[in-house]
Lab assay of single mutants.
Amino acid sequence: DLRKKIVDLHKSGSSLGAISKRLKVPRSSVQTIVRKYK
């Protein structure tokens, strides 16, 4: 699940930009998912 991957990467200390590059999703999507998770 993409959300879980993003949250896991964020927990392990990756920046939003790094996560978005790695998973090839827009940075804004990463930000939204991380914000919802918090």
Rank of each mutant, 00 (worst) to 15 (best):
Y37W: 12
R35A: 10
D8P: 02
S14D: 07
L23A: 00
V30A: 04
R22G: 06
V30E: 02
K5Q: 12
H10W: 15
R22A: 15
P26D: 06
K24D: 07
S28M: 06
S28V: 08
V30P: 01
I33Y: 02
R27Y: 14
P26L: 06
S20K: 01
K36Y: 12
R3Y: 15
L16W: 05
H10T: 04
S20M: 06
K21P: 00
V34G: 02
T32G: 11
Q31E: 12
D1P: 10
L23F: 07
S20C: 08
Q31R: 15
R22W: 09
T32R: 15
K21S: 07
K24F: 06
S28K: 14
K5H: 08
I6E: 02
K4Y: 08
R27E: 05
S29A: 14
L2A: 05
S15V: 02
T32A: 15
R3S: 10
L16F: 09
R35Q: 10
S14F: 15
P26I: 05
G13D: 01
K4E: 08
V7Y: 10
V34D: 02
K38H: 15
G17Y: 12
L23I: 04
S12G: 10
L9V: 00
T32M: 13
D8F: 14
V7W: 14
D8I: 12
R22L: 15
H10V: 09
K24Y: 05
R3Q: 09
K11R: 13
G13L: 02
G17R: 15
P26Q: 07
S20D: 00
Q31Y: 09
K24W: 05
K11S: 07
Q31C: 13
S15L: 02
S14K: 13
S12K: 12
A18S: 11
K4F: 08
Q31H: 07
S15Y: 01
S29N: 08
R27L: 14
K24P: 00
S20E: 02
S14T: 09
K36T: 07
S29I: 15
S20A: 14
S12Y: 07
K4P: 03
I6H: 00
D8Y: 13
Q31W: 08
L16K: 04
Y37A: 06
L2Y: 08
H10A: 07
H10G: 01
H10I: 11
R22P: 00
K5S: 08
V30D: 02
H10M: 11
Q31L: 09
S14Q: 14
V34T: 04
L2T: 06
L16S: 06
S14E: 15
S15R: 04
D1V: 13
K11T: 10
P26A: 11
Q31D: 07
S12H: 09
S14A: 15
D1Q: 12
K4G: 07
I33Q: 03
G17P: 05
S29M: 15
K24M: 09
I6F: 01
I6W: 02
R35V: 05
L2I: 12
L23T: 04
V25K: 04
A18K: 07
T32N: 13
R22D: 06
V30Y: 01
R27P: 05
I33W: 02
S14N: 12
K36P: 00
A18D: 11
V7G: 03
V25N: 03
I6V: 10
S15T: 09
I33S: 04
L9H: 03
I6R: 01
K24G: 14
K5E: 07
L2V: 08
I33R: 04
K21D: 06
R22K: 13
I19D: 00
R35I: 06
L16Q: 06
Y37G: 03
L16G: 03
G13E: 01
L23N: 00
K4N: 09
Y37R: 04
K38W: 11
L16A: 08
T32K: 15
R27N: 04
R35D: 09
L9N: 02
P26N: 08
V7P: 01
T32P: 03
V25Q: 04
L2D: 02
D1F: 14
V7Q: 06
S29W: 15
A18F: 11
V30Q: 02
S20V: 08
K24T: 05
L9A: 05
R22N: 09
S14I: 15
R22Y: 12
P26E: 05
V34N: 01
T32V: 13
S15H: 03
R22E: 13
Y37N: 04
I6K: 01
G13V: 01
R27G: 02
K21A: 09
V25M: 08
L2W: 10
G17W: 10
H10S: 04
K4D: 09
K11G: 05
K36I: 09
K11D: 06
A18C: 11
K11V: 10
R3I: 14
L16M: 11
H10N: 03
S29T: 15
G17I: 11
K5I: 13
L9S: 03
D1Y: 14
S14L: 15
L23M: 07
V30S: 03
T32Q: 14
K36L: 12
Y37E: 04
I33E: 05
I6P: 01
P26T: 09
P26K: 10
K36N: 10
K36H: 10
R3N: 07
R35N: 09
Q31V: 13
H10C: 11
A18W: 09
V30W: 02
R35S: 09
K21N: 07
D8K: 11
K5R: 13
G17F: 06
S28E: 08
R27K: 12
I19M: 02
H10L: 13
S29L: 15
V34A: 03
S12A: 13
K38V: 11
S29F: 15
L16C: 11
K24Q: 10
Y37S: 05
L9G: 01
S29Q: 13
S12W: 08
D8S: 12
I6D: 00
R35W: 06
G13A: 02
L2R: 07
R27T: 05
G13C: 05
V25D: 00
R35K: 11
I19W: 00
K38R: 10
I6L: 01
R22S: 11
G13T: 01
G17E: 10
S14G: 06
Y37F: 11
S12F: 07
K36S: 09
G13P: 01
Y37I: 07
Q31S: 12
L9P: 00
S12P: 00
S14M: 15
G17T: 15
R22Q: 14
V25W: 04
I33G: 02
V34L: 13
Q31I: 13
P26S: 12
I19Y: 00
R27W: 10
L23K: 01
D1T: 13
L23W: 00
I6G: 00
K5F: 11
A18P: 02
K24E: 05
R3D: 06
S15A: 05
K5P: 01
I33D: 01
R27F: 14
D8Q: 13
K21T: 07
Q31M: 07
K24H: 11
K24V: 05
Q31K: 14
K38M: 13
L9W: 06
R22I: 15
H10P: 00
Q31A: 14
K36W: 14
D8W: 15
R27H: 06
S12N: 11
V25H: 03
G13S: 02
I19L: 02
R22F: 12
R3T: 11
D1K: 11
L9I: 01
A18E: 14
L16V: 14
K36G: 08
A18N: 10
R3L: 11
I6T: 02
K38A: 11
G13Q: 01
K11M: 12
G17H: 15
S14Y: 15
K5D: 04
R35E: 10
S28H: 10
K4Q: 12
R3P: 06
Q31F: 06
V25E: 02
D8M: 14
R35P: 00
S20L: 03
R35L: 07
L2F: 08
G13H: 03
S12E: 09
I19A: 01
I6Q: 00
